[in-house]
Design a protein around this nucleic acid. Sequence first.
DNA 1: AAGGCTCGCT
Length: 605
Amino acid sequence: MAGTSVHHNLLLPQPQEHHHHTKGITSIEQQCISLLKNCKNIQEFKQFHCLILKLGLEYSSLCTGNLLSTCALSSWGSMDYACLIFQQIDGPDSFEFNTMIRGYIKDMNLDEAIMLYNQMLEMEIHPNNFTYPSILKGCAYLHRLEEGMQFHGHVFKYGVEDDVYVQNSLINMYGKCGKITQSCFVFEKMDEFDRNLATWSSIIAAHASDQMWSECLSLFQELTSQNCWRAEERVLVSVLSSCTNLGALDLGRSTHGFLIRNLSGLNVIVETSLLDMYLKCGSLVNALTILKRMKVKNQWSYSVMISGLAFHGYGTEALRVFSEMLEKGFEPDEVVYVGVLTACSQTGLLEKGLDFFKKMTADHKIKPTIQHYGCLVDLMSKAGKVKEAFDLIDNMPMEANDALWYSLLDACRVHQDLELGEQVAEKLLNLNSQTPNPYVILSNMYAKAKKWENVALTRREMGQKGLMKTPGFSIIQVKRKAYKFVSNDIMWAHCKELSDMLYQMEWQLKFEGYSPDTSEVLLDVDEDEKRERLSRHSQKLAIAFGLINTAQGSLIRIVRNMRMCKDCHNYTKYISFIFERRIIVRDRNRFHHFEDGNCSCKDYW
DNA sequence: AAGGCTCGCT
């Protein structure tokens, strides 16, 4: 038994007659401390503690502090026992209080930590620069802004506002509580030379989580321009997240290169961020390479993989990854289930999706959030069950948001359910009357049903509110430069090269059997005019530009602000076949991979 | 005796 040999060791220092004092601790105390720190579990620790008490050792406050910290901060979760020790201490000092607070924060027990903090003040023991970082960390984690602000006040009261650890913790706390302005305020007030990597990491992460991605990247540039910079995984994770959200594949690639050059190995969090970046920026090939090289995967890696595959239209593969995750013994959380349900809705697996929803609540005891209901509504709507989706929203335990209604409204449009569409549009306008989107979708539905009076009426109502339709556009990247094409933009009509290319494309398309599908042109004009308009959709212009300006056989990437129309989808399939190009289009919901005349969405989107 | 990182419905 491990205990026996340790007892033996503990008794060893006894024969020493003269006590060596080092830094105020006797050598026997020092030995006790080191033995205590090597304890593997609470039982072992208790045994030692009893033994020390039996030996009748008088220990100094430093020793008590160490005893406490060993217990309170151990990984074997023994705050109860630490409490017992703490209560026996006659007049605990700030060191001991800080240790206990840190122990509670480690267990995410902010309320107990705050109680102890108040007790500290009552006993007129001043908190110090070691008190605030830990307690602010607790506020950050649990998004407790009110308490965090209170501590910010105390930081001044107890004169530790210039401590860099305290300042970093404040930046982090405000960032996590969504108060980016306050984070910046603390950051700006800091001495430039005091700022360290944790400072930068906190402020950069704060911007990333507040969706200020471009600002996040400029801060990172500011950091790299300083000489003190060194490779830091933690910072780069936030940078990668910003690249992901901006769809900045090039910058993401550079960051990946930087990581490879500067670090010998990558941890699982960085690898997961890279995985997410490549997936969301549309490079499935790079994502799969990362995945193959990953030695360690955690729940988040699977989560990213599942939603990423779903985003690319590989629903079945996403579900296969999910079952692998379960086999490996990872407990699915609510986020993973959002990915799983998305995979089902993107692929049209209605029954499976409903099954997963049941499993989630019954087997895994996860309370569905509005996001889960969102997926479910999308799942049913896309499968044509619009009435059922409407009933589901009515019977949900929470209020519906606009995302949910939009999902249903778009399905009403696709499945031409005018009556329900009108109801849904009204719901949306009740939520926010100053948005053009419900009017636009509704008028498009009227147009498709050839109810031109209603079209005019809807458009007029929209105009009276001063609302404008957001124009559809497509962005194509050529040699690291972005070119934006807006539908029916006449600016490009003067470009001979482009109109020649469009003419050539059209000619070859017709030869291969393509005929324009004018059913989604939503104006009361004749067939020729419809065809004319169709041919000037932004995606077609962007593709023509891409065919002219990129090397033969190379990949074409397009990002759009809207869902593509049926005809553009069909047209792009033909182009991928005729010009032997892979074309990847990201619309507002997902990726479409066009290759050899087919699309990864299998025409379900 | 202390502080910093990644995933989710239109």
